[in-house]
């Protein structure tokens, strides 16, 4: 049997809200070490990669590897039936064709149970090579969300340039052009508010704002986001999930024709 109980159930709610517009169906790979998911969007331009380690659950039981194919729209609707402070348990019997979701109120006086039919998903898995990135930018996730939203006023794509001074987002379209420049923080009260640029070499790449906007829906998961860039390599956008794992998005860069 597979059973994973997540005391902070709202992490799962935030996760599924963050990916449901990008990916329709996904295989949850359940292993003794934890829960993972990898899925591309329908146009194969971006990739979602989720890891939730077993030690983030309490308890976590996985006797053998299981693949749970789940429609994320359905899962999102079911998760809306839970409260933010509910404890969420995912369970799957060894020979079952469904995943069971259990929502438990903090005082354990309300228990709801939903049985979701599993779906067969033909999922092409990609191998992501270890990459030494030219630049790694860390910033508040709310700031990332705001910049992506602001740049969308101007056009469909954004050019992100990392230098030793900081990071610059710029866009231009029919109505005009604009940019937002963030300097590296010198002194901040909280590390979560800091903007840092870890630079091997200056890099400038262009990406579709539509996808960055979808990625930024993960902002409620984590106060900070990390953007990793290398020339001619997909952008990595990473949100850490408490102490238990991460939600990563990869986006292929736009290439000048």
């Amino acid at each position: 049997m597979f059973e994973a109980r997540l005391p902070q159930g709202q992490i799962l709610k935030k996760l599924i809200e963050a990916v449901r517009e990008l990916v329709t169906d996904a295989n949850f790979e359940c292993k003794p070490s934890g829960l993972s998911l990898q899925a591309m969007d329908s146009s194969h331009v971006s990739l979602v990669s989720l890891l939730m380690r077993a030690d983030g659950f309490d308890p976590y039981q996985c006797d053998r590897n299981r693949t749970l194919g789940i429609n994320l729209r359905t899962l999102a609707s079911v998760l809306k039936c839970s409260s933010n402070d509910d404890i969420i348990t995912i369970r799957a019997e060894d020979d079952g064709d469904s995943a069971i979701l259990i929502f438990e109120s903090p005082s354990s006086d309300r228990l709801s149970e939903f049985d979701l039919k599993l779906v067969d998903i033909d999922n092409e898995q990609l191998v992501i090579p270890d990459t030494q990135y030219d630049a790694v930018v860390r910033m508040p996730s709310a700031e990332f969300q705001r910049i992506v939203r602001d740049m969308q006023i101007l056009g469909d794509s954004v050019t992100i340039a990392c230098s030793k001074d900081g990071v610059k987002f710029s866009a231009n379209g029919e109505i005009g052009s604009g940019s937002v420049r963030l300097k590296q923080s010198s002194a901040v009260d909280s590390e979560d508010d800091a903007v840092t640029v870890d630079l091997q070499q200056a890099v400038s790449l262009t990406f579709a704002l539509r996808y960055l906007s979808l990625f930024s829906k993960a902002a409620p998961l984590s106060p900070t986001v990390t953007l990793s860039f290398s020339k001619d390599v997909p952008l990595l956008v990473e949100f850490r999930i408490a102490d238990m794992g991460h939600l990563r998005f990869y986006l292929a860069p736009k290439i000048d024709e």
Partner: peptide
Amino acid sequence: CSRQTVLKKYFGSK
């Protein structure tokens, strides 16, 4: 004009 490329160009299939 720029073109979005697919991830498979960068990442190998399993």
